[in-house]
Design a protein around this nucleic acid. Structure first.
Lengths: 233, 233
DNA sequence: ATATATTGAATGAATATTCAGCAAGTATGT
DNA sequence: ACATACTTGCTGAATATTCATTCAATATAT
């Protein structure tokens, strides 16, 4: 081991870094023999990195392995194929996203307006709304139309989410006397949030705060009886 | 020539179709000896087809050549490399998009509200807003963050467009007494249109008409002094 | 000791690129 | 009118490259 150190200096350094990055988790065994789940998670994180840095088409297993500080064959050992790694990565992001807005909904008050406000805020939370993750999402979007599996997972964002937003908008309409069609407003709102995500990813100096402010401005305008710039009434 | 017909039946048939598709242009020489520009355009169209059908990562030169009804080496003959073909394709789409909204702006009346209305309508016009083209755009978006050349061309949509929208919103604000910040509203509006494009591409049964209606609903709500559901006041 | 995780070189498949040759047009000379 | 050389667009087999996958050897943990 120490014999080869002079030759492998660089690589060892990289691996140290990668391992210490994985330390965050609770399941904190390191180096050789990290638990199966830990390794998988580490590889998924490396995949997100690669997708964000190089895009879908340029993401190679070699790059993922390097990013994780592990050797070439590692992905095929823990996932069976590149395809399955990518699906697991997308699945992870979809689960994380869903868990995040569900949690936000839990924490929000009973009032419909509080729920809407919380959902919008959740979309621009630091935890979810990273350039890195947005870029990874976008990499998948580009391939989603031609791959049913991706489409299903990208759309997982909508299946329940969209229904919820529509229901909440309908609720708000019933509470006050807004004239708009609930579905139209729900569509406009969620499309706008997606568009803001997209702009954030493209990164023309748009910040999370400004994006959130734009969404809030919309809420206040459309639901004047329920929202203020500071929060739900 | 006739000797090989029995063997090449299928191929010949495909080529006939491809050639007749290229007939639309003015420069209508066919078969062998189509002008250089015509051939390039034909290959660009085939590239858009492939991007839309198979996504960026799965688009191969073989597929493009087949789609155009031409032989394998053709792309490297007319463009130098796959990369250059893709850049030319994106350039074409960006030019077409810019020309389209500029034309819409020309045709619109002098009033600021007419211009805004025209820009929004242009975005959902049949000519631009095809599933095929949206899918091709999306394929590029996924790679744009990692490739400066793509990013510049995808962003070409904003450089002037975004400035114009901001200026028009500021103008509307000055004409009536809206309280919003013009930049915020402009951001919200254009983000929403991008998000609607995205949803159209993903194709959850959303139609161009419904998407346009959602955008109009927004205009009416934000600029009540200037807009009605039927058009600018 | 055995089982398990990991490595990294070898393999093979996919595919971009090259290029020698062919065919259709075009110009020039007789 | 016909023949000849020359240009240009195109073909498709051969080559080079990139990369996912495999697997025998090795290291580590229990």
């Amino acid at each position: 081991m120490t014999v080869v150190l002079s030759l492998k200096n660089k690589k060892v350094a990289v691996r140290m870094k990668a391992v210490s990055a994985a330390e965050n988790g609770e399941n904190d065994r390191r180096g050789r023999k990290a638990s199966k789940e830990t390794r998988r998670q580490q590889l998924i994180e490396a995949t997100i990195d690669s997708l964000a840095k190089r895009g879908y088409a340029e993401t190679t297993l070699a790059d993922v392995a390097d990013g994780a500080g592990l050797s070439r064959g590692i992905v095929n050992f823990h996932f069976e194929s590149k395809e399955k790694l990518l699906i697991a990565t997308l699945q992870f992001m979809a689960d994380e996203y869903a868990a995040h807005w569900n949690a936000a909904l839990e924490k929000a008050g009973e009032a419909t307006s509080s729920k809407v406000w919380a959902l919008v805020a959740a979309d621009f939370d630091r935890k979810i709304c990273t350039k890195r993750k947005l870029a990874a999402w976008c990499a998948f979007w580009g391939e989603a139309k031609s791959r049913p599996t991706y489409q299903a997972l990208c759309g997982a964002r909508d299946v329940k989410y969209q229904d919820l937003i529509v229901a909440l908008c309908a609720q708000l309409k019933a509470e006050a006397s807004y004239s708009y069609d609930a579905e139209t407003i729900a569509l406009a709102l969620s499309a706008m949030m997606e568009g803001l995500w997209f702009r954030l990813m493209m990164g023309d100096g748009l910040t999370r705060e400004k994006a959130h402010a734009a969404a809030v401005e919309y809420l206040v305008t459309v639901f004047p009886g329920h929202m203020t710039h500071q929060g739900p009434k």
